[in-house]
Structure formats: structure tokens, C-alpha cells
Simulated scan of single mutants.
Amino acid sequence: MAAFEKIFIVDDDELFLIVTKSIMEDEDFANKIYNFEDGNKALRQLQSIEKKDLPEVLFLDINMPMMDGWEFMSALEELEIDNNFNIYITSSSINPLDLKAAETNPFIKGFISKPIDPGKLEKIIKACKI
């Protein structure tokens, strides 16, 4: 049985999406995995679905060309979506400012450095199921 019913991955890196989705499927992480290559598409999807259909976990890249992760977070807050889902920043960035911004944002559950591996997924499951 999968740990989660539905998750969103918002990331413009096609290779990251392919590898991450494969690992998640191997680990039975989620029944449904939705990929969005930019934040605008993910926001539109979040706006169009009912609260019961929101993802349980959303993985968000910081560095994307059309809308970066921080712009996504600002737009999400403005939409006032009842986001009881867990948002994890995923990035290869080790910029201390990004780490601090993730730690101080009340809507972000954690910061995960890329690549994602089974151990990191297990930590997310434990953190979200508490």
C-alpha cells in the first residue's frame, strides 16, 4: 500500500522528474504522482481541484525559469488555498539564504537536497504521518 494517495512534483528538470518518479514508484511512495514543469501549471491545478483532491505532499524546486519556488510560494499564499499538504523544497542549491527561507516559511515542511533517494522518502513518510 502506498504511503500517500497523491503527490505533486513541481520541477523543470526532466531527468530529475524521471528518476524521482521511478524511485517513488519502486518505493510505493504514492498512488498518483503528478509532474508540473513550471509553477504556473501547478498553481492552476491546485486552484481547479476540490480540497479533498489536494496532494498530500508537494515537492517544489527553487530554481525554475518561468516562476521560481519562492514566487510559487508567494502566489500560493495569495490564493488562500487551504493547503494542509506538506511542501518540501527540493534543490541542488546549498545557498544558505534558500535554506533559511525554507526554515522560516511556516508552509514549508522541509528542505531536501537533490537527488531524492529512498532514505529521504522514508524520512518524509515518517515526518508526515506523525
Rank of each mutant, 00 (worst) to 15 (best):
F107H: 10
N83V: 02
D98T: 01
S113E: 15
E80R: 13
I81F: 08
P106A: 07
I116T: 03
F72H: 04
E80F: 08
F72K: 05
P96Y: 08
I89Q: 02
L99N: 00
G119P: 01
L121N: 06
G119Y: 07
D82R: 14
E78K: 13
A101I: 02
K114A: 03
E80K: 15
T90G: 00
E77P: 01
I89E: 02
I112K: 07
S74P: 00
M73N: 04
E71H: 03
I89S: 01
P96R: 13
N84T: 14
N105L: 03
A102W: 00
N105V: 01
E103W: 03
L79Y: 09
P106K: 10
I112W: 01
E122G: 05
K114V: 00
P106C: 05
T90D: 04
N84R: 12
I87Q: 00
A102G: 10
T104V: 13
E122N: 09
T104P: 00
L79E: 14
D98A: 04
P118K: 09
N84V: 06
F111Q: 04
F72N: 02
I112T: 04
D82L: 11
N105R: 08
M73W: 02
I81E: 06
K120I: 08
I108T: 03
E103G: 13
S92W: 07
E77V: 10
I112E: 08
I94C: 09
E103H: 12
I81S: 06
E78Y: 05
I112H: 01
N95F: 06
I81K: 08
S113T: 15
P115Q: 11
L99Q: 14
F72P: 02
P96Q: 13
N86Q: 15
P106Y: 11
I108Y: 08
N83H: 15
A101Q: 13
E103N: 12
K114T: 03
F111M: 04
N83G: 12
E122I: 07
T104E: 11
P115W: 12
E80T: 11
D82M: 12
K100V: 07
N95G: 03
K114N: 05
E122Q: 12
N95R: 09
E103D: 12
F107Q: 13
G110F: 02
E71R: 05
T90Y: 02
D98H: 15
E77G: 13
I89Y: 03
I108L: 11
K120G: 04
I87S: 01
K109M: 12
K114Q: 09
A75E: 15
A101S: 12
S113D: 10
